[in-house]
Computed example of a mutant assay.
Amino acid sequence: MENAAGHVVVLVEGRSDAVVVEALAEARGLDTTDGIVRVVAMGGVTNIRAHLTRQTREADVHALGLCDAPEERHFLRALQETGRPVTTRREMAALGFFVCVQDLEDELLRALGPEAVEAALSDLGHLSRFRTFQRQPEWRDRRLHDQLHRFAGSGSGRKLALASRLARQLTPATTPRPLAELVEGVLSAVR
């Protein structure tokens, strides 16, 4: 990676995570297109070590990150292997690496509520497909939250489109804690 002095790189698992972080950063006045703050979708959590290794070689780059709770162990191990002696979530946060409770979609669902997610699905033209999904025997008796969570992560391009739509609805009061702390970390790093 080529970076100039004082750059901040935010490492996230996938493109849907990146669009949410970019939207929140831009809402706080950060330009994620100027190269000073870059949000990097790693193409999966198992690539974290390689990305951190690159950042370690570049002293002028401040790396931050966001992961889902089931993948926290990958982040912890990669941080340790790249010279950052952390063992707890709190220590990760002190370095600028934050963990979503279940995953980013769950954070957005809890923050905005099922009604907002259904409205976003309607805007995207996916509500009728969601209603069909709800009638499937294996999903029929599940909580609406669980149905929306599963549906959001299935279907080509749906996860990215929905994440982008929901990110634009977040306010400072509704932004999930890991995302709010990550953006604050980015702001601190560029000041």
Rank of each mutant, 00 (worst) to 15 (best):
H7N: 11
T33E: 14
A189G: 05
G44L: 05
G83V: 04
P176I: 12
H149R: 15
R49S: 12
P114K: 05
V99A: 04
A63M: 01
R89A: 14
Q169Y: 06
P114Y: 08
T175A: 15
R110E: 14
A25N: 05
S122E: 15
F151I: 06
M42G: 08
A161S: 13
A173P: 02
G6V: 02
I48E: 01
A167Q: 07
L104H: 05
E22Q: 15
A27Q: 15
D31S: 11
L127F: 11
A23D: 08
L76F: 13
G185E: 05
V12Y: 01
L144D: 05
G96Q: 00
G35N: 09
T33K: 06
C67D: 06
L160I: 10
R168G: 10
E105W: 02
F75S: 01
L52H: 02
S164H: 13
V21C: 09
E91A: 10
R54Q: 13
R168Y: 09
V61Y: 06
L108F: 03
D34W: 05
L64I: 06
D17T: 02
G157W: 07
E26L: 10
H149S: 10
R110H: 14
L108M: 03
A173D: 12
S156H: 15
V186H: 09
T175D: 09
R177N: 09
R28I: 04
L30W: 01
N3I: 04
E71Q: 13
L121C: 07
G96F: 00
D146M: 05
H74K: 09
